[in-house]
Computed example of a mutant assay.
Amino acid sequence: MTRIDRTFAALKAEGRKAFVAYIMAGDPDMETSLQIMRGLPAAGVDVIELGLPFTDPMADGPTIQAAGQRALEGHQTLAKTLDMVRAFRQGDAGTPIVLMGYYNPIYSRGVDRFLAEAKEAGIDGLIVVDLPPEEDAELCLPAQAAGLNFIRLATPTTDAQRLPKVLQNTSGFVYYVSVTGITGAAQAQAGAVGPEIARIKASTDLPVVVGFGIATPESAQALAGVADGCVVGSAIVKLVGEGRPVPEVLARVAELAAGAHRG
């Protein structure tokens, strides 16, 4: 079992929902983002989703695009992001870390080299949004063989014909994108999401977490209530982009986490 598997099993045994928090590695600089990352578990975060900055983040809205740009302007790289994970692991051996990004930086580094380094650094899972199931041999299957979860996204447009393909080699959890479009673009509604989560759960034993469009403790509670947990990204990244002090960012994360855990 990976850290992700163990975390979701423990949460299920406790009757609790998962709170997953997304931050961009290197935003606004590596030192600050590492400080935020180190504070997430104490703020109630069960799984950390760490963004890998990329020049063409097609699935991301303006808030996360700007975060990636700030990180790139600060010379954040894949190697530095793995160094961040290593530094985090010096003080935290238990919190799962999912690296979310795009395939180009991984391909450029070399898949075998990347997987070996990611596993050694302490990465537990990958979300690579521009690799469809048809390309599983590129990264998904090698990642699974290396002991990393490969987490797939399902969306409102993932129909009954497509869903089995999406689920085929997914592990760790399924990430349900609650709104059609880019991150941070619309507010998710639990009433619309609930039946979709039930549809996915009828086809898999994996936990299903919902993300995109969750910006308040109340929406975190509502969305976590119809799934196994929720993901908040843009609402956190926005505070970083506004230059809020780290304690203020973490205090807001704690409020969001408390909402999700009430779900």
Rank of each mutant, 00 (worst) to 15 (best):
G181A: 13
L148D: 12
Q144V: 12
Y176I: 05
P142C: 01
P164D: 13
T155V: 12
Q161M: 14
P133W: 04
D136T: 00
S171W: 08
C140R: 00
T180K: 14
P132Q: 08
G181D: 09
T157E: 11
P142V: 00
T180Y: 12
V177P: 02
V177I: 14
L139G: 03
I182K: 14
R152F: 11
P132A: 06
K165E: 13
A145I: 10
G147Q: 01
I151P: 00
L148E: 08
L141G: 06
F150A: 02
A146T: 11
E135S: 14
L163V: 07
Q168S: 13
L153P: 10
R152I: 12
R152L: 12
L153G: 00
F150C: 01
P133D: 12
T170E: 02
S178M: 04
A145T: 14
L139N: 03
R152C: 05
G172T: 08
I182E: 15
F150S: 00
E138A: 11
E134H: 12
Q161W: 12
Y175K: 02
L153Y: 08
P132M: 09
C140S: 08
R162E: 15
G184P: 07
T183Q: 06
D159T: 12
A143V: 04
G147I: 08
L148I: 12
L163R: 03
D136H: 04
T183H: 07
P142G: 06
G181T: 13
E138K: 10
G181V: 08
Y176C: 12
R162M: 10
L139Y: 03
L153K: 06
P133F: 07
L139Q: 03
T170R: 00
P142N: 08
D136M: 01
P142A: 06
Y175Q: 01
I182S: 02
T158H: 03
V174P: 03
F150W: 03
I151K: 02
T183N: 05
A143P: 05
V177N: 07
V174Y: 02
G172P: 00
Y176M: 14
E134S: 13
S178Y: 03
V166N: 06
L141Q: 14
T170P: 00
F150P: 01
T158Q: 06
Q161P: 10
T158L: 10
Q161Y: 09
I182M: 14
A137N: 13
I182Q: 15
L148S: 03
R152A: 13
K165Q: 15
V177F: 08
Y175D: 05
S178I: 04
L167C: 10
Y176T: 04
S171Y: 13
P132H: 08
C140W: 02
P133S: 08
G184L: 00
P156N: 11
L153C: 03
G172M: 00
D159M: 00
L141M: 07
T158W: 04
V179L: 08
T180E: 15
A137G: 13
N169W: 01
N149D: 15
Y176P: 01
T183V: 10
Q168G: 12
